[in-house]
Design a protein around this nucleic acid. Sequence first.
DNA 1: CTAATTTGACCGGG
DNA 2: CCCGGTCAAATTAG
Length: 273
Amino acid sequence: MALATPTAVVLELMTMGQQSAAHLRELLRAASPPVQAEHQALAAEILRCCDRVIAAVSAGATDKKRKATDPGATSCHLPLAMMPSKRRVRGAEAHREVHADTTADGFVWRKYGQKDINGSNHPRLYYRCALSGEGCAATRRVQRSQEEPAAFVIAYYGEHTCGAAFCQQRAEPLPPTVVDSGSNAWGVFGAVDRNRGSPLLPSLGAEHKHSAVRRHAEAPGDTSRRWSSPSSSSSYSSEVELGASPVEGFLDGNFDWEWETVVNSLSFGDLLH
DNA sequence: CTAATTTGACCGGG
DNA sequence: CCCGGTCAAATTAG
């Protein structure tokens, strides 16, 4: 029940700052008369600093017992080795954090788990790219904001190696607020999901039938099934979350997870101000 | 019948 | 030992 803890406040504020910085960076990047690279670098640095603070604070909040002495935290680089040798590389993996009022980001995700987190009253949902079977390693974790029922905190891990252009149906996606935690290679991921010039849809409540996600172009015909379970033969869902449809989880046990009052008219935090 | 979710167990790090 | 993340079997939905 850590509601008004200063840590939470700091996190919230820093997240806002992070988003603003991200927005600024996008603006600079898409400026009609291209601005100096110096300015862009400045925006990027601001963003980086915000990210660092958030990372540190959230780390301290996650495990309260741990000391806040981070030798490398103040450095400009995260010397993390993201070597896939271990299966659990959760530690301090770089991720982009997006906070939005909808879980729809234009990608097709498959839910593979759900867990209750001690700190919050809302469960955390784990998704993988629906094309993970084809080798895509992108994952994301979705969690509701503890106070705001209609707000989601989505953390994206990894990159869409399946060809993000395919995953992302650019019908309505418009990634709300991409906050780049730019630490590693993920930082330059934006080449694919650039939401340039796409004005927010005034009315996007309509949910359409998504075209079936069949394995398409470069799916290597071979039998290189990554982690398909033997029993459930290649039965992996392709979940599409669109708009503000409360489809995701209405659990009986988790009373908090019910959210029928999700705002239909979403105003992405990106456009604020 | 096939496919998509759900839920509990298991794993592994801190 | 506790907590978070993933797997995988079972169930439900289409």
